[in-house]
């Protein structure tokens, strides 16, 4: 078949039109996603604004919506996050260091690697069931801050491991060789050089992991967290010797997302406003953590030149 020049031109134009159409569709899809985010935040803010007073942060939940606040919820969230960070970060970093710096290439390593990938795909509610059976009943930790913290730590462990491995991999091999050349042992090389140089990347992974843990509701409900808590956990600082108490670890608690869920599931309109206000606080916390992580990653990439 032969085409005249004119026919070919129209054909090219016709095919090129698809480029423009697809470009538009792509833009629209992106805009739809971003618009959802904006509408979501705007809607929450619009509804919750009037409840976002200082008293909202310093009052316990109450049967009267206008007096209710999130004091026990945010204290609970902070306490649970503390346990989660203290468990997930050392464990995750240690696992990543093993996989990147120590692991021999054998079937055991392969199994561990496959497992880390698979665990990232396990639904979060299954972690809740694991914790209910294992931590709450088998280990007898009860429905406590400790149980919740450990559950979320297991949940974010894959996130921390993957991020740490990436950070470790970014340290060039020449640094390791230099350390060995000066007679360092493997652990001296890792602890003195590789870990410090990758600390910012590890920090980013930790923040992303915690920002995920902070919004997790289902596993915490599954282990049996209460939805109505009108008291605070025991104080970690006491007046008697030794001045530090770990009693709070075993206290019952509630967290921000559970408080929000509780208010959302009530029929009264007034509680919906509380839910929106709690949602704003929760969303600001998560977005701030994610923003920090993005900023850290961006500046890291610019700053480090090996």
């Amino acid at each position: 078949m032969r085409f005249t020049l004119q026919e070919m031109r129209t054909m090219i134009a016709r095919h090129k039109r698809w480029d423009h159409i697809f470009g538009l569709v792509g833009m629209l899809c992106l805009l739809l996603g971003i618009l959802t985010l904006v509408v979501l935040f705007g809607q929450l803010l619009l509804q919750g604004m009037e409840r976002l007073t200082p008293e909202f942060f310093t009052s316990f939940p109450s049967r009267r919506a206008e007096n209710a606040g999130i004091l026990s919820a945010w204290v609970g969230t902070v306490a649970v996050m503390l346990v989660t960070a203290m468990t997930a970060v050392p464990l995750g970093v240690a696992a990543a260091v093993y996989l990147e710096e120590y692991a021999p290439r054998n079937w055991m390593t392969a199994i561990i690697e496959i497992n880390v990938t698979n665990l990232a795909g396990v639904p979060s509610i299954v972690y809740g069931l694991l914790a209910l059976g294992l931590f709450v009943y088998q280990f007898g930790l009860g429905q406590s801050i400790l149980s919740a913290g450990l559950t979320l730590a297991l949940l974010i462990l894959p996130v921390v491991i993957v991020a740490t491995r990436e950070a470790l991999r970014a340290v060039p091999g020449s640094i390791r060789e230099a350390a060995y050349a000066l007679g360092a042992t493997r652990w001296q090389m890792v602890s003195g050089h590789v870990l410090p140089y990758s600390s910012a990347g590890i920090l980013t992974g930790m923040i992303i992991g915690l920002s995920r843990a902070i919004g997790e509701t289902a596993p915490i409900i599954t282990i049996g967290a209460l939805t109505f808590i009108a008291f605070l956990p025991n104080s970690p600082v006491t007046t008697d010797f030794p001045f530090i108490s770990f009693k709070w670890l075993m206290d019952p608690f509630t967290v921000m997302p559970i408080q929000m869920f509780n208010w959302t599931s009530r029929p009264e309109e007034a509680f919906q406003l509380n839910a929106a206000a709690a949602g704003v606080v929760l969303l600001v916390m998560t977005l701030a953590m994610n923003g920090l992580a993005i900023w850290l990653r961006y500046h890291l990439r610019k700053k480090i030149k090996w």
């Binding site: 979501l40 809607q43 919004g215 289902a218 997302p257 959302t264 949602g279 994610n290």
Partner: peptide, 24 residues
Amino acid sequence: SIKPVLELLGAVPTVVYGYFALIF
């Protein structure tokens, strides 16, 4: 510039999405 913003969609706590679905 758009990718990080888009990824925030996956970072929003699911209970907030639930509220959004129910109320909006």
